[in-house]
Design a protein around this nucleic acid. Structure first.
Length: 269
DNA sequence: AGTAGGACCTGGTGGC
DNA sequence: TGCCACCAGGTCCTAC
């Protein structure tokens, strides 16, 4: 599942390949459920120069000339794939962006993902609800975000993009394990010290995963079609029934906040 | 305010 | 081999 490390990996690759190029043409195939791009979408983007691709939470922000921005969310299975030659179209491809010397295919098996255009000047408003980016900030800031509301389930807070941006199901479970906390704990039961430990572990797991180009547990591949190597480093996610790396007891899988949730019943309290 | 549950979507898997 | 129920989950929406 693309979470912060995966989306950031894709962003870096797209940036490297595309920035400074003009969009020469755009082929539309089938369209997504949300904000289906049409003729107006194509017309608006055509001949614009891509100035930069930024990221906020799990959203890719494609900044084009003339204050035009394309927001893209990969959700579960969205992919941007870079290719030099015109790629062979496959079943789930939805759009093909033809830049001056490179092509990018937008495809999405489950159709949860979206791309949409917004005015660059309204970006601040568009993205205002998100909590802080977890990397590159003082962990005290993250720890503080995990303080209230006290009744909230820890995992629900971690998945809530308004609390901290960019964490999804995999890294929520991994951070809880590293911090020795059950995902079902109430925020109000965490000491100041524990919240800081958790904040640091959130940063650690995201940083380590980013260094390995993210996690490919199911569908994810980066913009160069490669799988992320962090999948080998996962300690609880996807390891139900396997031995805990610390105590050797089996990792348990439950459903919490409607999500598959993995933890060690002995090491996490 | 917070949580639960449904909806969206389709490929892959496990059971029979 | 074929069929089918079920599972994966980011985010939004509704109901409590």
């Amino acid at each position: 599942m693309p979470e912060l490390p995966e989306v950031e990996t894709v962003r870096l690759q797209l940036n490297r390949a595309l920035v400074g190029q003009r969009l020469v043409s755009l082929d539309l195939f089938q369209t997504g459920r949300e904000q289906p791009p049409g003729r107006a979408f194509v017309k608006a983007l055509l001949n614009r120069e891509l100035l930069a691709i930024e990221r906020r939470a799990k959203i890719l922000i494609w900044k084009f000339s003339d204050d035009l921005t394309m927001l893209a969310h990969l959700k579960m299975t969205g992919r941007f794939i870079i290719s030099d030659a015109k790629p062979v179209r496959s079943k789930h491809d939805r759009m093909l962006f033809n830049f001056e010397t490179v092509n990018v295919t937008w495809s999405d098996v489950r159709k949860f993902g979206y791309v949409k255009l917004v005015d660059t000047k309204s970006l601040g408003r568009e993205l205002s609800a998100y909590g802080p980016e977890p990397l590159g900030v003082d962990p005290l800031i993250l720890a503080d975000r995990l303080r209230a509301p006290k009744t909230r389930v820890l995992k629900a807070a971690l998945l809530n993009q308004e609390v901290i941006a960019g964490i999804g199901n995999i890294y929520a479970d991994e951070a809880c394990y590293r911090a020795g906390l059950r995902p079902t704990r109430r925020l109000g039961s965490l000491s100041t010290e524990k919240r800081l430990v958790l904040a640091r572990e959130i940063q650690n797991v995201l940083r380590e995963s980013l260094a390995l180009r993210g996690t490919s547990s199911n569908d994810y591949v980066d913009a160069e079609g490669e799988r992320g190597d962090f999948v080998k480093m996962l300690r609880v996610y996807g390891r139900a029934g396997e031995a805990c790396l610390i105590c050797k007891n089996p990792i348990k899988k439950i459903v919490a906040v409607q999500r598959g949730t993995h933890y060690c019943p002995k090491c996490q309290v």
